[in-house]
C-alpha cells in the first residue's frame, strides 16, 4: 500500500491505482469525459487534470491515467487545476455548444461560450469512446480518421461497411449524443448502413441484427428468440427434464 494525500486527506492505496480511482473511492469529485470504466484508457480530454507534487515537482497530470507508484500529494481544486479544467471546457463549448454534458459541466464550473471563437457547432468531442467500444467488441468498424482539427470518427472510406454489425455499442458509450441511429420495427440504420432486426418469437422485442448473431456465431436455425427468452426456454427445458428423471 502507498500513502498519498488528496486535498490534504491522507489515504492508503494499492500500488498502480489511478488517481481518479483513488479519488472516486474516497468521494472526491473529479469531472471526466473520455473516461469510461468499461473501456481502455486514452486520456485525451484532459478534463480530469489534477495537480500533483511528485518528488518536489508540481505538475498537472491526467488523473484517469496516472498510476500511483510512490508517495505523492494530489490537489484537485487549486487555481492551476481550475484554470486547466476551465480552459478545456471553454475550448469544448466553443465547438460543442449543444452537447448536454458539456452544457452541464459548463454550468457547474461557470464557463460561457465565447462568441468570437465560436466554431461551427458539432456534437462530437473526439473522445473516441465509440472507437474503443467498437474495438473492444472486436468489430473495428469505425476509427478516428484524419488528423488535427479535422480528426473525426468514421467507418472506412466514410461509407457503409461490412465490418459494422449494428450493435449500437458506439452510440451507447457516446457521451454527447453525436452518434445517432434510426430504429423502426424490424429495421435499424447506423453508419450509412441498414440492418434487419430480428423479432423474438416469444416476447416480441426486436433483439438483434442478423449481423450481430453472425458475429456471435449463433447458428442460423437458432435465431427465434432473444437472449432472455432463449435462457428462459432452456431453463424450463432443463427443469422439466430433471423432474422427469
Amino acid at each position: 500500500m502507498i500513502e498519498i494525500t488528496i486535498n490534504d486527506i491522507p489515504l492508503k492505496v494499492e500500488k498502480g491505482t489511478t488517481i481518479l480511482h483513488a479519488a472516486q473511492a474516497n468521494g472526491i469529485d473529479i469531472p471526466t469525459l473520455c473516461n469510461h470504466e468499461g473501456l481502455t484508457l486514452d486520456g485525451n480530454c484532459r478534463l480530469c487534470s489534477v495537480e500533483i507534487e511528485d518528488m518536489g515537482n508540481k505538475k498537472i497530470v491526467a488523473s484517469c491515467m496516472f498510476p500511483i507508484t510512490r508517495n505523492i500529494s494530489v490537489e484537485t481544486e487549486t487555481e492551476r487545476v481550475r484554470r486547466a479544467r476551465n480552459t478545456v471546457l471553454q475550448l469544448l463549448v466553443n465547438r460543442n455548444p449543444k452537447a448536454p454534458i458539456i452544457q452541464q459541466l459548463c454550468a457547474k464550473y461557470g464557463v460561457d461560450r465565447e462568441e468570437r471563437f465560436a466554431l461551427e457547432p458539432d456534437l462530437c468531442i473526439r473522445c473516441g469512446r465509440c472507437v474503443r467500444a467498437c474495438e473492444a467488441g472486436g468489430t473495428k468498424a469505425i476509427e478516428l480518421v484524419g488528423r488535427g482539427f479535422d480528426r473525426h470518427v468514421a467507418p472506412p472510406y466514410e461509407l457503409e461497411t461490412d465490418a459494422c454489425i449494428g450493435c449500437l455499442s458506439c452510440a451507447t458509450v457516446c457521451p454527447t449524443g453525436k452518434i445517432t441511429y434510426e430504429e423502426t420495427p424490424g429495421k435499424r440504420k447506423i453508419w450509412y448502413k441498414e440492418f434487419d432486426v430480428l423479432q423474438c418469437k416469444r416476447c416480441g422485442i426486436y433483439f438483434a441484427t442478423k449481423e450481430m448473431l453472425d458475429w456471435a456465431g449463433r447458428p442460423e436455425n437458432d435465431r427465434d428468440h432473444c437472449n432472455h427468452c432463449q435462457k428462459y426456454i432452456e431453463s424450463v427445458k432443463f427443469l422439466t427434464e430433471s423432474q422427469k428423471k
Binding site: 473495428k140 468498424a141 469505425i142 476509427e143 478516428l144 480518421v145 484524419g146 488528423r147 468514421a154 467507418p155 472506412p156 472510406y157 461509407l159 461497411t161 465490418a163
Partner: peptide
C-alpha cells in the same frame, strides 16, 4: 484507391478502418 486499401487490409489481416485511419493521417 479504396480498392487498394481493401486489398492491403485483407493481405495484412487487419481492419479496413485501420488502413483508412493511416491513409488519412
Amino acid at each position: 484507391s479504396i480498392e487498394a486499401m481493401r486489398t492491403v487490409a485483407e493481405h495484412l489481416g487487419i481492419s479496413e478502418s485501420r488502413v483508412f485511419a493511416v491513409v488519412t493521417f
